[in-house]
Design a protein around this nucleic acid. Structure first.
Length: 692
RNA sequence: GGGCACUUAGCUCAGUUGGUUCAGAGCGUCUCGUUUACACCGAGAAGGUCGGGGGUUCGAGCCCCUCAGUGCCCACCA
């Protein structure tokens, strides 16, 4: 066979053929049973990675299989605006041009941002098509589109009217780099070797890792049962500070661990979560020491204006000199950093919007426990339930510009919830909503909700949803919660968590490590079909895989070879068809009966494995049949009775192509079209083989 | 600290209810073979006491207990 043909060209040709024929379009008016799959909207940040490629390969295999099995399939594509991540990527680009948010102003910035969005989108959507994704592009949705915008407003208004939304000062995780509050689920912890400082507070000594927050102390606390400090509880002690002597009360609170450090803590309600809670219990005042840019405020005296790390270094000599700092020891602990930009985050008091989600979460738990969602792997059900049971109020505001703006308007002392300006003189809230506020609605906002569309009626709840495990709380749990709340239904019937692909050391792929593998690289080397096949072997639910470029190349090569094998089988069957071949399909010969039986077994096993979402087994099954049964054994045997076996060869080849099509769409279409009786008719709409 | 996974051939991984077909695949290694579908191939071979130990059973990678190692998630101790 020709070994040097242009695979890419062929892929493009068939993809546009399918697209033009409209095979991927769902038809709400069809009377076929529906099967709906929701594509997790990738973030608008640029490149697609291996995880996306795997998700899309899995989704597409299922979509194609269901389509061939007589379903009206909706595979719905979309894109997420990804607030923080998008702004970070955009900011980088702007800074290269010497521009910034400050220089541009909100309006101009947004204009450019939309331009950047288009740019990024173009490259992303191209890659999608390369993977062969059989999505209904006519229904593609972007989270900032008008539809989702209406849905988001409906969501906000509903919460507001039901008194589930409130705004207030609260301790939040603040990212000084991104200049916004983030959620605790967006925080990562990094182990760092720092120091533990022992400070003298009057008659007491306490240990702290953060002496710079000293200016915000409003109490000293011990455990109520700790006998060592009983005499001080409820009293005031006089302590030495950097700005002279000061009185401070000693309180008792169970949050204090008597075994850690000296058993005494300083309470800084403005900059520590535990301390904040202690402060609430004891009515302590809050002093802000660190501002939103990560610098000390004027309460820090001469240290005001310094960044946290600088200030800490700078104040140590004075603390030593004044005899306040009495001991230092090495201390390794976890430091909270922003998941997106990796800078150290600060607990800070800020004015933010919150949603009370406890009741909603409770109902979601109920729903999950009724087993209406099949989780793969199963144990994720428990993981999600536990998170939902311990949920706390959701901080939904972000100090960003890219996103759905909070639909609240102010005029003098008045406030109104409205999607658009209520009129002259009204000013909209500056903040935007958390990205997940809109993503949580995705299963129904994409189908026209809050309108009652036929699409919503037909395709919701979704039959299948897939996700990386890392967004199980941020996204999956929220979708369940919001679907229950707004539609009283589950968002999807099957929830498939794929594993994470990691490098050989077991580390995540990340930009900062530079260990990523570009799916486009694999596609260029081995073709889409082979790349997809390689990925299916890692598609076992919940199981991580360790890969390297070399390992993926091996797999890619293997399946590229398989593709060649398939081409050669087709060549033998079709091109080398002898004159005067038998026309009648019967299986009287012993070999014919054998291959027929093997094929039937394969059909059963492949179908069953797709139905049970074991794509790695389904692909193995058909691979084994085609290579080691059909090619190695049967085909060899037909050489002695070529003309007689022709109808059986054609029949088995056709069935094999169909069985392979969900996984290797391109080569199967190409070979299908070369069958003498199939010119122009697509394998995409052929019927899945069934045994009598 | 709490929870959850994983540990099977040199490497990356399968192995769905315990039972001739479970001891496998791909790649790698070795031997042989250019027989017209295919060397991006074919025939064959080597290689694992399925992490250690204990238990249940007529019978266990597969169930239970325990130990060890690895990874992930959650919480967070100032």
């Amino acid at each position: 066979m020709d070994k040097s043909y242009d695979r890419k060209k062929v892929e493009e040709k068939w993809y546009s053929f399918w697209d033009e024929q409209g095979y991927f379009k769902a038809d709400p008016n069809s009377d076929k049973p529906k099967y709906s799959l929701l594509i997790p909207p990738p973030n608008l940040t640029g490149e697609l990675h291996l995880g996306h490629a795997m998700q899309h390969s899995i989704l597409d295999a299922l979509a194609r299989y269901k389509r061939m099995s007589g379903h009206d399939v909706l595979l719905l594509p979309g894109v997420d605006h990804a607030g923080i991540q998008f702004e970070a990527a955009f900011e980088k680009k702007l800074s290269k041009e010497g521009l910034s948010k400050q220089k541009l102003g909100r309006e101009e910035w947004l204009k450019k941002a939309w331009g950047f969005k288009e740019e990024v989108y173009t490259s992303v959507s191209k890659t999608w098509r390369f993977l062969g994704l059989s999505a209904d592009w006519s229904r593609e949705v972007f989270t900032l589109d008008e539809g989702p915008r209406k849905a988001v407003f409906e969501e906000f208004k509903t919460y507001f009217d039901k008194d589930l939304i409130y705004k207030g000062p609260y301790i939040v995780v603040w990212c000084p780099k991104d200049q916004t509050a983030i959620e605790d689920v967006e925080v990562e912890y990094e182990e760092r070797a720092e120091k533990l400082y022992y400070l003298k507070y009057g008659p007491l000594t306490l240990a702290t890792a953060r002496p710079e927050t000293k200016f915000g102390d409003t109490a000293v606390a011990v455990h109520p049962d700790d006998k060592r400090f009983q005499e001080y509880v409820g009293k005031e002690i006089e302590i030495e500070t950097l700005s002279g002597k000061k009185k401070m009360q000693v309180i008792a609170d169970t949050a204090v661990d008597p075994k850690f450090g000296t058993g005494v803590i300083k309470v800084t309600p403005g900059h520590d979560f535990t301390d904040y809670e202690i402060g609430q219990r004891h009515n302590l005042p809050i002093i802000q020491v660190i501002d939103k840019t990560g610098r000390l405020t004027e309460v820090a005296g001469k240290y005001a204006g310094m960044k946290v790390a600088e200030a800490r270094e700078a104040m140590l000599p004075e603390l030593r000199e004044k005899g306040i700092l009495v001991k230092e020891e090495d201390y390794t602990h976890n430091v909270a950093v922003c998941e997106r930009c990796k800078s150290v985050v600060e607990p800070i008091i800020s004015e933010e919007w919150f949603v009370k989600v406890r009741e909603m979460a409770k109902e979601a738990v109920q729903l999950i426990k009724e087993d209406e969602i099949t989780f793969l792997p199963k144990n994720y059900e428990k993981i999600l339930v536990e998170w939902l049971e311990n949920i706390h109020d959701w901080c939904i505001s972000r100090s960003l510009w890219w996103g759905h703006r909070i639909p609240v308007w102010y005029k003098d002392k008045e406030m109104k919830v409205s999607q658009d300006s209520p009129g002259e003189g009204w000013v909209q809230d500056e903040q935007v909503l958390d990205t997940w506020f809109s993503s949580g609605l995705w299963p129904f906002s994409t189908l026209g909700w809050p309108e009652k569309s036929t699409e919503l009626e037909k395709y919701f709840p979704w039959d299948f949803e897939i996700s990386a495990p890392e967004i199980k709380y941020l996204w999956i749990a929220r979708m369940v919660m919001l679907s229950k709340y707004f539609t009283d239904q589950v968002p999807f019937k099957t929830m498939f968590f794929h594993g994470m692909l990691r490098d050989l050391e077991g580390r995540k792929f990340s930009k900062s490590l530079g260990n990523g593998i570009d799916p486009n690289y694999l596609i260029e080397n081995w073709g889409v079909d082979a790349t997809r096949m390689a990925l299916y072997s890692y598609s076992v639910p919940g199981r991580d895989g360790r890969v390297s470029k070399q390992i993926l190349d091996e797999r890619g090569k293997n399946f590229r070879n398989f593709e060649t094998k398939l081409r050669n089988i087709a060549h033998y069957v079709i091109e080398l068809k002898p004159e005067g071949s038998n026309e009648k399909l019967d299986f009287k010969n012993e070999d014919d009966a054998w291959i027929k039986k093997e094929l039937e077994t394969t059909i059963n096993n492949v179908s069953a494995n797709i139905d049970s979402l074991n794509l790695h087994l389904a692909t193995e099954e058909i691979y084994n049949f085609v290579w080691h049964k059909l090619a190695d054994v049967y085909l060899e045997k037909t050489k002695e009775r070529r003309a007689e076996a022709q109808p059986i060869l054609e029949y088995v080849l056709e069935s094999s192509l169909k069985l392979l099509h969900p996984f290797m769409p391109f080569v199967t279409e190409e070979l299908w079209q070369s069958l003498p009786n199939k010119k122009g008719e697509s394998i995409t709409i052929s019927l899945w083989p069934k045994n009598p």
